[in-house]
């Protein structure tokens, strides 16, 4: 009893939507960044599901590169957060709100 592709894509879309929603409603930068990770993972699910159904390794290779990119992006992103914090030592994570919009 196999799960059809639609279910995987449905799950992926819901996860993507939740990531986007979280990014839009949360103000804490670290949590917003986690939401971006959720969105990337939604793309990963879609890639692997398609790769499985297409019987093509390309999707898995794509996931491989996404992992690499996510790692690199997180390093710089958190580096920026830390750099801002060091300029304002009295700030906590809770103060790292976006300026506006």
């Amino acid at each position: 009893m196999t799960v059809s592709l639609q279910w995987y894509i449905g799950l992926s879309v819901v996860l993507f939507g939740m990531g986007a929603l979280g990014l839009l409603i949360r103000r804490n930068v670290l949590v917003m960044y986690m939401c971006i990770e959720l969105m990337l993972n939604a793309a990963n699910i879609a890639f692997v599901a398609f790769a499985e159904k297409l019987n093509d390794i390309g999707g898995q290779a794509a996931v491989f590169f996404v992992l690499v990119v996510a790692a690199a992006e997180v390093v710089v992103g958190l580096g920026i957060v830390v750099a801002i914090f060091r300029r304002r030592p009295d700030a906590t994570v809770d103060d790292l709100h976006m300026m506006k919009g």
């Binding site: 986007a20 990014l23 971006i36 969105m39 793309a43 879609a46 992006e73």
Partner: peptide
């Protein structure tokens, strides 16, 4: 990052 994720999807 948001736009990259959208692009990736």
């Amino acid at each position: 990052g948001f736009s990259s994720a959208i692009f990736l999807y």
